[in-house]
Design a protein around this nucleic acid. Sequence first.
DNA 1: AATCAATAGTTGTATATACAACTATCAAAC
DNA 2: GTTTGATAGTTGTATATACAACTATTGATT
Lengths: 149, 149
Amino acid sequence: MKIEDIIKSKGISLELKTVLNLLYTSNLVQDKSSEVLKPFDLSSEQFNVLRILRGQKGVPASLSCVQERMICKMSNTTRLVDKLIAKDMVQRRVCKKNRRKVDITITQKGLDILQQLDGPMKALNDSFIEKLSTKEAETLNELLDKIRS
Amino acid sequence: MKIEDIIKSKGISLELKTVLNLLYTSNLVQDKSSEVLKPFDLSSEQFNVLRILRGQKGVPASLSCVQERMICKMSNTTRLVDKLIAKDMVQRRVCKKNRRKVDITITQKGLDILQQLDGPMKALNDSFIEKLSTKEAETLNELLDKIRS
DNA sequence: AATCAATAGTTGTATATACAACTATCAAAC
DNA sequence: GTTTGATAGTTGTATATACAACTATTGATT
């Protein structure tokens, strides 16, 4: 479905159309991701944080370091991590070098759950991007990078 | 800033990279929009609903008709409209032809506020898309349409 | 006309988010 | 070594969101 058919407005500028297209498409992707994550009782951003922590390969991350890389910067990182701690998926302790900071690491249980999700989430991402050629996907990344620049 | 520098992972697939780029970029756009809307005490989705109703050009819309076109389908449309009614920006009455439905219309106050927002919001959207040529913006729309297809 | 399923919204409730105010720690200046 | 400003997280609170259960109305079936 072309974006024009979703928004049902004819005389719309290219700029507005493009922004709405971006928002609608991103939202669709997010909704589908949430569906996959739901049985695991994980929100999209919680999953993202787990993935960030796994990427640290054992090196503890501070809250602000996690927050920097989160998709939604506004949300309350302390409480998001609280939820993950309650599920035994991450661990938090005071940083020895700077006692203002906290060291956050993913637990074995967190790693196990991520591993279970790797397949389905990869399948989902692939299902979106397989509609594009490699060249097109690269172009899309370039255009999005430009918008953020 | 290229998406690789934000997510700080080297060995990431093109598919995942593209999806993350989409989410990050869309979120940035949404955050900036919220900033513009904040002084008017409107959320991004409330603004979107007002715009949908203005597009109806006087023809009342049902709740489900509004919901269909909302960016975030999941949210509770009844209560979102409640908020707009409380601000006198929209009006709701029972539909005469089908008393299960409601007729929602934008009020003059709603139209006035939208008009005040037209300038700043257009400036914001343009600021994102001006980094792209017309050709590139059209390509972006095509690629996003493909992802949703 | 009575029953039933489908449709359209509303309401209850638990959770999440946004934002501001707060506490604790550190680093630099005096 | 005390004061000060900056940094890092936490907590309080109000609002928003997600999801399910509910009510009301309609259209179709018997």
